[in-house]
Design a protein around this nucleic acid. Structure first.
Ligand code: NAD
Ligand code: NAD
Lengths: 226, 226
DNA sequence: ATATTATTGTGAATTTAGTCACGACTTCCA
DNA sequence: TGGAAGTCGTGACTAAATTCACAATAATAT
């Protein structure tokens, strides 16, 4: 077995962009979009910092990976920066997504459908329940999961909101169809070939972790908490 | 203005537990619970690693912050480890939570209500819509947001699933009532006094970040991807 | 018994992320 | 025009997290 490793971040474009930075980009983008809509022309790392709650040095550092986007003594030009990020985040082309599992969570996502500030659209949904199949939710058609192979049509990103015990089976079929990325809301940790990227969002874990932090990590006490 | 800083992680119990470790604890706990229910008696860091997708050295390191929980050459005793984590994660006492905003997401959470493997329970919900007030969802009563002060009754943790533009106003009221922690699903970054812990889960950002990674961070290509 | 195999716990090394602090440059006002 | 104020970009530092790699030890088989 020959394995070719392309370590992350040293390939393709010149992306040496740290992962931590990459995760913050959509946040910056959204906020810049707001500013722009408000007609704001310039913004400093300090202002941004207060709004997105990221240290201003971190913001400057993040931006600097893309070159010198600002002007010393001035700040950043909102429109320019926004345009830059639009290109960087590929906001011009829409990414099509499939959602699997139209239950409580899945339905919520379909109603919301991420199209507010961004380039991502749920194109179709699948469910195993015949009751749900055939209806639309917010213009998104719901197909039966048996039609996955037939309908998926080259979609590369999937959101998984099915019961945990169905996860492996469905994942295998998605992999078979050439999926590239999965946003997994089930508590199951899935196994996929390593060219596929999976992000887990484990809501129960998030809540438990918050509670754990509250009990065990007392925060700063500011005696003049105004 | 006098500020007393208690830096995180050097206070109270002997917790020098790194944050990254703390965030993984609920995950470990859940998986150990599964194992135990399956009647499994022992488990190695390698097995755990495959199941939860965390490097086995990281798992051993994580556990080691709590002392020597395993046996060399053997692994970990599932029951013992589980018992240990139950205590550590305070799984015996239930944490009461309030949910604010019974919309798409909020309703999904109410139906789910986290009580599966853990000690967290949504006790009550609030909404501004009179249509929703008065009904119950899965035994959780829905009150009008105007009753917040009256009903909240010392609850220390809140889940926020309201529209972004309502966030500051509602947050201030929660703070006023002495909330300790907020799990914020709105895209708004909220400002709170620094003894209050806020975790953001920004679903749109997560999805955008996944797409960004797919386009810009080609993963390892395994030529014998079996 | 003894050898073989499995697996921990942890120092040390490495990698990744975050922050400080300041020189360089811009803007803006008097 | 000159100087004060503001802000970036970044080298150097610090901190946090991960991973390597191996001695120590336990379980098991023969
Ligand atoms: N709802 C929440 O608040 C919440 C919180 C944390 C985690 N989760 C996790 O998210 C997932 C979904 O949760 P939910 O509350 O929406 O569950 P749900 O039961 O409401 O929805 C699951 C949906 O998947 C469908 N389904 C079942 N098998 C399928 C298959 N093979 N192919 C396609 N569809 C199939 C069902 O018909 C159902 O509509 C679960 O894994 C759950 O553990 C949910
Ligand atoms: N639904 C999703 O998939 C999704 C995805 C990403 C982010 N979000 C964010 O999560 C939040 C909730 O989303 P949603 O889709 O559930 O929205 P929603 O509009 O369906 O629900 C919001 C609910 O909050 C209630 N509300 C409004 N003002 C209130 C107040 N002052 N006090 C109490 N309740 C109030 C409304 O009556 C409504 O029931 C939003 O901020 C949204 O941006 C949602």
């Amino acid at each position: 077995m020959i394995i070719v490793w392309m370590k992350e971040g040293i390939t393709m474009d010149q992306n040496k962009i740290p992962q931590a930075t990459a995760k913050r980009l959509p946040l910056y983008y959204r906020f810049l979009n707001n500013l722009n809509q408000q007609g704001k022309k310039r913004v400093s790392s300090k202002e941004l910092s207060e709004a997105v709650k990221v240290d201003s040095a971190t913001i400057r550092r993040d931006f600097s990976y893309f070159g010198a986007l600002g002007k010393k003594g001035y700040g950043y030009n909102v429109e320019y920066l926004l345009g830059f990020f639009r290109k960087t985040l590929d906001q011009d082309e829409t990414t099509e997504v499939a959602l699997i599992g139209v239950g409580n969570l899945g339905t919520a996502f379909l109603h919301y459908n991420f199209m507010k500030n961004n380039n991502i659209q749920i194109q179709m949904a699948f469910d195993a329940d015949p009751e749900k199949v055939g209806t639309d939710i917010g213009d998104v058609p719901i197909y039966h999961i048996d039609e996955l192979e037939e309908k998926l049509n080259g979609i590369k990103v999937a959101i998984l909101t099915i019961p945990a015990h169905e996860t492996d089976q469905v994942t295998d079929r998605l992999v078979e169809q050439g999926i590239d990325g999965i946003l997994n809301f089930t508590p199951a940790r899935i196994t996929v070939p390593n060219h596929i990227r999976v992000h887990h969002i484990d809501l129960a874990v998030e809540l438990q972790a918050l509670v754990y932090f509250l009990k065990h990590y007392p925060l700063q006490v500011d005696q003049a908490d105004k």
